[in-house]
Design a protein around this nucleic acid. Structure first.
Length: 211
DNA sequence: TAGTCACA
DNA sequence: TGTG
Protein backbone atom coordinates (compact mmCIF):
# COMPACT_ATOMS: atom_id res chain seq x y z
CA UNK A 1 0.00 0.00 0.00
CA UNK A 2 1.37 3.38 -0.97
CA UNK A 3 1.42 6.00 1.75
CA UNK A 4 2.15 8.86 -0.60
CA UNK A 5 0.25 12.04 0.08
CA UNK A 6 -0.24 14.17 -2.99
CA UNK A 7 0.30 17.74 -1.88
CA UNK A 8 -2.02 19.32 -4.41
CA UNK A 9 -4.61 21.67 -2.92
CA UNK A 10 -7.74 20.02 -1.61
CA UNK A 11 -10.76 20.80 -3.71
CA UNK A 12 -14.47 20.48 -3.10
CA UNK A 13 -16.73 19.84 -6.04
CA UNK A 14 -20.45 19.09 -6.10
CA UNK A 15 -20.10 16.26 -8.56
CA UNK A 16 -23.78 15.26 -8.41
CA UNK A 17 -26.65 17.06 -6.66
CA UNK A 18 -25.96 16.83 -2.90
CA UNK A 19 -22.85 14.70 -3.53
CA UNK A 20 -19.49 16.32 -2.89
CA UNK A 21 -16.04 15.14 -3.90
CA UNK A 22 -13.27 16.36 -1.61
CA UNK A 23 -10.15 15.73 -3.64
CA UNK A 24 -6.97 14.76 -1.83
CA UNK A 25 -8.65 15.51 1.47
CA UNK A 26 -6.40 13.69 3.91
CA UNK A 27 -3.00 12.05 4.32
CA UNK A 28 -3.49 8.32 4.06
CA UNK A 29 -0.67 6.97 6.20
CA UNK A 30 -2.20 7.45 9.68
CA UNK A 31 -5.57 6.21 8.47
CA UNK A 32 -4.35 3.04 6.83
CA UNK A 33 -2.20 2.34 9.88
CA UNK A 34 -5.33 2.28 12.04
CA UNK A 35 -7.20 0.27 9.43
CA UNK A 36 -4.51 -2.41 9.54
CA UNK A 37 -4.93 -2.71 13.32
CA UNK A 38 -8.69 -3.13 12.91
CA UNK A 39 -8.25 -5.83 10.28
CA UNK A 40 -6.17 -7.85 12.73
CA UNK A 41 -9.00 -7.78 15.28
CA UNK A 42 -11.92 -8.27 12.88
CA UNK A 43 -10.55 -9.77 9.68
CA UNK A 44 -11.86 -9.18 6.17
CA UNK A 45 -14.48 -11.64 5.05
CA UNK A 46 -16.94 -11.97 2.22
CA UNK A 47 -20.54 -11.86 3.33
CA UNK A 48 -23.50 -13.89 2.13
CA UNK A 49 -26.19 -11.82 0.45
CA UNK A 50 -29.93 -12.44 0.90
CA UNK A 51 -29.96 -13.97 -2.57
CA UNK A 52 -27.41 -16.60 -1.59
CA UNK A 53 -24.31 -15.21 -3.29
CA UNK A 54 -21.16 -14.00 -1.63
CA UNK A 55 -20.05 -10.42 -2.01
CA UNK A 56 -17.07 -10.03 -4.31
CA UNK A 57 -15.41 -7.51 -2.04
CA UNK A 58 -14.11 -8.29 1.44
CA UNK A 59 -15.70 -6.55 4.37
CA UNK A 60 -15.10 -5.66 7.99
CA UNK A 61 -16.18 -2.86 10.32
CA UNK A 62 -15.24 -0.77 13.30
CA UNK A 63 -17.33 1.39 15.59
CA UNK A 64 -20.40 0.58 17.65
CA UNK A 65 -22.33 -0.80 14.67
CA UNK A 66 -21.09 -2.89 11.77
CA UNK A 67 -22.89 -3.43 8.50
CA UNK A 68 -23.58 -7.13 7.93
CA UNK A 69 -25.30 -9.27 5.34
CA UNK A 70 -26.57 -12.83 5.43
CA UNK A 71 -29.42 -14.88 4.02
CA UNK A 72 -31.85 -13.00 6.26
CA UNK A 73 -30.92 -9.62 4.82
CA UNK A 74 -28.79 -6.62 5.66
CA UNK A 75 -28.50 -5.26 9.15
CA UNK A 76 -26.30 -3.30 11.49
CA UNK A 77 -24.99 -5.32 14.39
CA UNK A 78 -22.91 -4.47 17.44
CA UNK A 79 -21.42 -7.97 17.23
CA UNK A 80 -19.02 -9.25 14.60
CA UNK A 81 -20.53 -12.59 13.48
CA UNK A 82 -17.03 -14.02 12.87
CA UNK A 83 -15.34 -13.12 16.16
CA UNK A 84 -18.62 -13.04 18.14
CA UNK A 85 -17.24 -9.96 19.86
CA UNK A 86 -17.88 -6.27 19.46
CA UNK A 87 -16.35 -4.62 16.43
CA UNK A 88 -13.04 -2.82 17.09
CA UNK A 89 -13.39 0.70 18.44
CA UNK A 90 -13.54 3.50 15.92
CA UNK A 91 -10.14 5.25 16.02
CA UNK A 92 -10.15 8.94 16.91
CA UNK A 93 -8.47 9.69 13.57
CA UNK A 94 -11.47 8.17 11.76
CA UNK A 95 -14.01 10.14 13.77
CA UNK A 96 -12.20 13.41 13.18
CA UNK A 97 -11.72 12.80 9.48
CA UNK A 98 -15.39 11.96 8.93
CA UNK A 99 -16.55 14.86 11.08
CA UNK A 100 -14.29 17.31 9.25
CA UNK A 101 -15.35 16.08 5.82
CA UNK A 102 -19.04 16.33 6.68
CA UNK A 103 -18.55 19.80 8.13
CA UNK A 104 -16.74 20.93 4.99
CA UNK A 105 -19.92 20.44 2.98
CA UNK A 106 -22.35 21.73 5.60
CA UNK A 107 -23.19 18.82 7.92
CA UNK A 108 -22.29 19.97 11.43
CA UNK A 109 -21.81 17.61 14.36
CA UNK A 110 -21.62 14.42 12.31
CA UNK A 111 -20.51 11.69 14.70
CA UNK A 112 -20.44 8.33 12.91
CA UNK A 113 -21.09 5.21 14.95
CA UNK A 114 -20.18 2.87 12.12
CA UNK A 115 -17.24 2.51 9.75
CA UNK A 116 -17.57 -0.09 7.02
CA UNK A 117 -14.20 -1.14 5.60
CA UNK A 118 -14.42 -2.63 2.13
CA UNK A 119 -11.47 -4.20 0.33
CA UNK A 120 -11.58 -4.40 -3.46
CA UNK A 121 -9.12 -6.69 -5.19
CA UNK A 122 -8.52 -6.20 -8.90
CA UNK A 123 -11.51 -7.48 -10.85
CA UNK A 124 -14.01 -7.03 -8.04
CA UNK A 125 -16.87 -4.57 -8.05
CA UNK A 126 -19.81 -3.46 -5.97
CA UNK A 127 -23.21 -3.70 -7.58
CA UNK A 128 -25.63 -0.84 -7.70
CA UNK A 129 -27.41 -0.41 -4.38
CA UNK A 130 -28.81 2.06 -1.87
CA UNK A 131 -27.52 2.70 1.64
CA UNK A 132 -30.83 2.39 3.43
CA UNK A 133 -30.20 0.29 6.50
CA UNK A 134 -29.53 3.28 8.74
CA UNK A 135 -32.09 4.58 11.21
CA UNK A 136 -31.95 8.26 10.31
CA UNK A 137 -31.35 9.53 6.78
CA UNK A 138 -30.67 13.08 7.93
CA UNK A 139 -27.01 12.14 8.36
CA UNK A 140 -24.71 11.97 5.35
CA UNK A 141 -22.58 9.15 4.07
CA UNK A 142 -18.83 9.85 4.16
CA UNK A 143 -16.51 7.67 2.13
CA UNK A 144 -12.69 7.68 1.95
CA UNK A 145 -10.72 5.97 -0.82
CA UNK A 146 -7.32 4.33 -0.30
CA UNK A 147 -5.13 2.57 -2.86
CA UNK A 148 -6.13 1.92 -6.46
CA UNK A 149 -8.33 4.40 -8.28
CA UNK A 150 -11.90 3.21 -8.80
CA UNK A 151 -14.81 4.34 -10.93
CA UNK A 152 -17.84 5.29 -8.86
CA UNK A 153 -21.23 5.32 -10.53
CA UNK A 154 -24.38 7.11 -9.35
CA UNK A 155 -27.74 6.47 -10.93
CA UNK A 156 -29.94 8.49 -8.62
CA UNK A 157 -33.44 7.46 -7.59
CA UNK A 158 -33.63 4.55 -10.02
CA UNK A 159 -31.32 1.60 -10.16
CA UNK A 160 -31.06 1.69 -13.94
CA UNK A 161 -31.06 4.38 -16.58
CA UNK A 162 -29.06 7.57 -16.67
CA UNK A 163 -25.96 7.50 -14.53
CA UNK A 164 -22.98 9.63 -13.71
CA UNK A 165 -19.51 8.11 -13.28
CA UNK A 166 -16.29 9.58 -11.93
CA UNK A 167 -12.95 8.48 -10.54
CA UNK A 168 -12.13 8.14 -6.86
CA UNK A 169 -8.44 8.45 -6.09
CA UNK A 170 -6.50 7.72 -2.94
CA UNK A 171 -7.17 10.43 -0.36
CA UNK A 172 -10.46 11.48 -1.93
CA UNK A 173 -13.50 11.75 0.32
CA UNK A 174 -17.01 11.58 -1.06
CA UNK A 175 -19.84 13.01 1.04
CA UNK A 176 -23.50 12.67 0.13
CA UNK A 177 -26.82 13.31 1.81
CA UNK A 178 -30.17 15.10 1.52
CA UNK A 179 -31.52 14.50 -2.00
CA UNK A 180 -28.62 12.12 -2.74
CA UNK A 181 -28.89 10.22 0.51
CA UNK A 182 -30.75 7.26 -0.99
CA UNK A 183 -29.22 7.49 -4.46
CA UNK A 184 -28.38 4.21 -6.09
CA UNK A 185 -24.63 3.87 -6.50
CA UNK A 186 -21.94 1.30 -7.11
CA UNK A 187 -18.27 0.73 -7.90
CA UNK A 188 -17.23 -0.64 -11.27
CA UNK A 189 -14.82 -3.52 -11.69
CA UNK A 190 -11.46 -2.50 -10.27
CA UNK A 191 -8.70 -2.24 -12.83
CA UNK A 192 -4.93 -2.38 -12.24
CA UNK A 193 -2.80 0.76 -12.48
CA UNK A 194 -0.36 0.07 -15.29
CA UNK A 195 2.02 2.72 -13.94
CA UNK A 196 1.98 1.19 -10.44
CA UNK A 197 1.66 -2.57 -10.96
CA UNK A 198 2.50 -3.13 -7.28
CA UNK A 199 -0.82 -1.59 -6.30
CA UNK A 200 -3.27 -4.46 -6.22
CA UNK A 201 -6.23 -3.32 -4.17
CA UNK A 202 -8.45 -0.52 -3.03
CA UNK A 203 -9.75 -0.01 0.47
CA UNK A 204 -12.78 2.12 1.13
CA UNK A 205 -13.89 3.44 4.50
CA UNK A 206 -17.57 4.34 4.73
CA UNK A 207 -18.65 6.35 7.75
CA UNK A 208 -22.28 6.36 8.77
CA UNK A 209 -24.57 7.13 11.65
CA UNK A 210 -26.41 3.82 11.75
CA UNK A 211 -28.12 3.75 15.12
C1' DT B 1 -30.90 -8.43 -6.24
C1' DA B 2 -23.82 -4.87 -1.64
C1' DG B 3 -24.20 -10.74 -8.05
C1' DT B 4 -23.52 -12.45 -12.60
C1' DC B 5 -24.09 -13.22 -16.88
C1' DA B 6 -26.08 -13.13 -21.51
C1' DC B 7 -26.73 -9.98 -24.76
C1' DA B 8 -26.24 -5.64 -27.57
C1' DT C 1 -17.55 -2.98 -22.67
C1' DG C 2 -22.00 -1.32 -20.61
C1' DT C 3 -26.49 -2.59 -19.42
C1' DG C 4 -30.83 -4.84 -17.74
Amino acid sequence: MSDLFNNSRPECEEIYPDMFLLTDFTPIEPISKQANLIIKLSPFRRMMTPMGHYTGIEITNCGEYGWTSDLNGYQYSTIDPVTRKNWPLMPEEFLQLANRAAKTVGYDNFIPDSCLINQYKIGTSLGTHQDKDEKDYQWPIVSLSIGLTATFQVSGAKRTGNSTAFQLHQGDVLVWGNSARLAYHGVKKLKPDTLNPRLDKRINLTFRKAG
